[in-house]
C-alpha cells in the first residue's frame, strides 16, 4: 500500500512566504527530456521491429508469387528472393484451361456481394428492433440468442448440409446454398450495431412520434440517415467473411470443383494436392485475393475501428 509520507518528486519549488510558486528546476527538466528521448527511441526500435515481423510474411508471399515457374519450379525453396522474376504463376491462374481459379474467384465474389446486402438488412432490422422498440418477448429473444451463441457452430454442419441437400443446394448448387446459410442466421450477430443504435438519443424517435410519424417512418427517415458508419461496418464485415470461409464452403461444395470458393480451392492446393508443385501458385492466388480486400479494408478502416471499439465497450 502506498503511504503518502514521502515527499513527491515534483518540479515545484515551494516558497513559504510567497505561497506556491511553480518553478521547474532547469537541470531536472534536462534530465527529464533526456529520459523522454531515450524511452521514445526504445519505442521506435520496438515499433520498427514489430513492423518488420508484421509485414515480412506478406512481403515473402509477394516475392514467391513472382518466382518463375518454368525455371525454378512451383515448390517451397530454401531462398527468399526469386532468381528470375516472372509472371508465370499469374499467367497460369488467369488461363481458365489450367484451373478453375477464375471461377472460384467469381463464386466468392458473388457470395460476398449477396451476403453483404442480405446480412446487412437482417442485422440492421434485428439490432434496430432490439435497441429502440420495446415489446413483449424482447428479453426472451435476446436471451435465446445468447444461449444459442454458446453452441459451437460446426455442431449443426451436417444438419445444415442435409437441409440444403433437400433443397438441391449442395455441390452444383453450392453457391446459393452457401448464401442461404450465411444469411439465414446472420441476425444473431446484432450486438455491435445494437450498441451503435443504443447511443443515438431516444428523444429523436420520441419527437418524431409526437409529430405523427409511424414507427416505419421513424426507422426510414430519422434513424437510417444517421447509421452510415455502422452500415458501412456491417457491409464490410459481411463482404469480407466469405473470402475466408473454408469449413462450410468445403462441406457444402464437396467434390464439385467448379463450385468451390477461393479459400477451398487454394487450401486444397496447399494441403491436399501435391503442394510442392502448387506452392507458388497458391502464393499468387493469395496475393490476388488479399490485395483487393486489403485495399477495401484500408479505405474503410475508419468505420471498422469505430465498429470494433464501440462493440467492445458495449459488449
Amino acid at each position: 500500500m502506498n503511504t503518502k509520507n514521502e515527499i513527491p518528486e515534483v518540479d515545484i519549488v515551494v516558497d513559504e512566504k510567497a505561497g506556491v510558486i511553480r518553478e521547474i528546476k532547469p537541470e531536472k527538466l534536462a534530465s527529464k527530456k533526456a529520459n523522454e528521448r531515450r524511452s521514445n527511441t526504445i519505442i521506435y526500435v520496438i515499433l520498427v521491429l514489430m513492423s518488420i515481423i508484421w509485414l515480412a510474411p506478406f512481403v515473402f508471399l509477394v516475392f514467391q508469387s513472382f518466382r518463375s515457374y518454368a525455371l525454378e519450379g512451383g515448390g517451397m525453396v530454401d531462398y527468399l528472393l526469386p532468381k528470375t522474376w516472372s509472371l508465370d504463376n499469374y499467367r497460369w491462374l488467369f488461363n481458365p484451361e489450367n484451373s478453375n481459379f477464375l471461377r472460384w474467384y467469381g463464386n466468392t465474389f458473388i457470395i460476398a456481394l449477396f451476403c453483404s446486402v442480405i446480412q446487412t438488412m437482417m442485422i440492421l432490422s434485428v439490432s434496430y428492433t432490439l435497441s429502440r422498440l420495446r415489446f413483449k418477448g424482447r428479453k426472451f429473444i435476446m436471451n435465446t440468442v445468447l444461449v444459442l451463441g454458446l453452441f459451437p457452430g460446426f455442431l449443426t454442419m451436417i444438419t445444415l448440409y442435409f437441409l440444403l441437400k433437400q433443397l438441391g443446394l449442395t455441390q452444383t448448387g453450392a453457391i446459393p446454398g452457401l448464401i442461404l446459410i450465411y444469411c439465414a442466421s446472420s441476425g444473431m450477430g446484432y450486438y455491435i450495431s445494437k450498441g451503435f443504435f443504443d447511443t443515438l438519443p431516444k428523444s429523436l424517435d420520441e419527437s418524431a412520434r409526437i409529430d405523427g410519424a409511424t414507427r416505419f417512418q421513424v426507422f426510414l427517415k430519422i434513424i437510417m440517415p444517421l447509421t452510415k458508419p455502422i452500415v458501412i461496418y456491417t457491409i464490410l464485415m459481411a463482404f469480407m467473411a466469405p473470402w475466408g470461409d473454408y469449413v462450410f464452403a468445403s462441406y457444402v461444395a464437396f467434390g464439385s470443383e467448379p463450385n468451390y470458393n477461393v479459400a477451398v480451392g487454394l487450401y486444397r492446393w496447399v494441403n491436399v494436392a501435391d503442394y510442392q508443385g502448387y506452392f507458388t501458385r497458391f502464393c499468387a492466388g493469395g496475393v490476388l485475393v488479399a490485395v483487393p480486400i486489403t485495399i477495401l479494408f484500408m479505405c474503410l478502416q475508419k468505420y471498422y475501428v469505430e465498429g470494433v471499439t464501440g462493440g467492445a465497450v458495449k459488449g
Binding site: S51, P57, M76, W243
Partner: peptide, 20 residues
C-alpha cells in the same frame, strides 16, 4: 496501418502461408 494488415488479409492466406 501496418499492424492492421493481419486483420485485412483473409486468414486462410496469411495463416496458411505462415504455417508453411
Amino acid at each position: 496501418t501496418i499492424l492492421v494488415m493481419t486483420i485485412a488479409i483473409p486468414q486462410f492466406v496469411s495463416l496458411l502461408y505462415v504455417s508453411k
